[in-house]
Amino acid sequence: MRVEQIAVFLENKSGRLAEITTILADNNINIRALSVADTADFGILRLIVDDVEKAQNILKGGGFTVGKTDVLAVEVADKTGGLATVLRSLHSAGINVEYMYAFVNKTGENAVLIFRFERMDEAIEVLLKDGFTLISGAQICAL
């Protein structure tokens, strides 16, 4: 159910994001989804890639600070209100979202929402109970 995500610490210096994506590309690692959270001084880059182990090792070897976290990927129909229904379900169960980002898959029919919760197990339970579709890392890569 869970999807592995890697996070990379970045100082706000020009060209850092380009460097990371170049390293990944040079090693044939495909980025499926990404988000950046930033402050004036630094940022946290989060990536879902097709080869987590390899990406982690390569970036560490390149001198980056890399962390690995579990997130959940929820697939919803790409139409108005898709995200809102998921958030309502979580809210009514009292589950807080630590952060989230989203992408639309190639066919444009479905959207994938990536969530990080503090209480992951409870979130899984609630989402499944309310009939949402959780997809795996392999499924994301196959999209």
């Binding site: 995500q5 600070t65 976290t69």
Partner: peptide
Amino acid sequence: EVVESIFFDAMKKQR
């Protein structure tokens, strides 16, 4: 220098 033990994927925790 940020090492893994003090790096968080959530901005709120990092701050």
